[in-house]
Amino acid sequence: MGWIGESVDSIKSLQIRQVLTQAVSLGMIVTSALIIWKALMCITGSESPVVVVLSGSMEPGFKRGDILFLHMSKDPIRAGEIVVFNVDGREIPIVHRVIKVHERQDTGEVDVLTKGDNNYGDDRLLYAHGQLWLQRHHIMGRAVGFLPYVGWVTIIMTEKPIIKYILIGALGLLVITSKD
């Protein structure tokens, strides 16, 4: 009977070790993703260093599903730059181009007007009611780099949550079932 107990113990320890290994490797994946994201936040100085374009208002430059890399530096905002801004009362930030800039002599504050390249008029209709200009605090960052198509993954996942759950489930299953 001794050898049965011994083998059961060895199996138990093996399984615990395996489960632990898998938990650790899963944790490694999650934390390394978090590390990359936080490092990007530090480097770019922007709250969300990577954004996905959701609308066609900047076509043909940026299409729906493209990815933009943002950078938030102390440099003053100038006309022509593509900025990402938040408007009070709107959840989703907007990516548009600056067409007018007025910078104060004494305080250095800026009044900025934006417009989508593909839109007919400027963005005053999109701003909060009665708002004529964007200020510095509305602006989350400026677009510095560009990668096409990659953002479709995010768009599909947010618009069809089932696919997200299937994908997460499949990945989880893969991690659990994989032996190494």
Binding site: R78, A79, I99, V101, H102, E103, R104
Partner: peptide, 8 residues
């Protein structure tokens, strides 16, 4: 008033 005005 303004150190810079840029108007497209």
């Amino acid at each position: 008033k303004n150190s810079l005005n840029q108007i497209s």
